[in-house]
């Protein structure tokens, strides 16, 4: 199972993922998933710390899978967060805004 940490950025609420070098990134493409349970727990702990430091809100581990060469969250809800509203494809990450 591949996992990443998802959250919302505190200042603007934008959905972010924990990427390399403990940086929060806006695209799942910039985010290497982990398959190790220990590593996943460590990443989540970083998320909790980032919440305490007023960087992000609501860190959560989510499952992702490769789909046509890109990473996609497995759960519908998280897929929506990674993409944007399905009724407005001109908005959100899918539209690059």
């Amino acid at each position: 199972m591949q996992q990443v940490v998802i959250a919302n950025r505190l200042t603007d609420g934008v959905v972010v993922f924990l990427g390399r070098n403990r940086c929060w990134v806006e695209s799942l493409d910039d985010c290497p998933p982990t398959e190790q349970t220990d590593e996943a727990s460590a990443l989540l702990a970083l998320g909790v710390k980032a919440e305490e430091e007023q960087e992000i809100v609501g860190p959560d581990l989510i499952e992702v899978a490769s789909h046509q060469g890109t990473l996609v969250p497995v759960k519908m809800r998280e897929a929506m967060r990674a993409r944007g509203p399905s009724t407005r494809t001109d908005l959100g990450k899918q539209a690059g805004n």
Binding site: G13, V14, V15, E51, Q54, V57, G58, M80, R81
Partner: peptide, 26 residues
Amino acid sequence: RLSGKLSEDQFRPIRLMNGLYLQLHA
């Protein structure tokens, strides 16, 4: 909140009582 004097748990009811939710995208 931004300076950390208020935690998210403490801030949530305050922002809600001003109409501000945190939803899926923002």
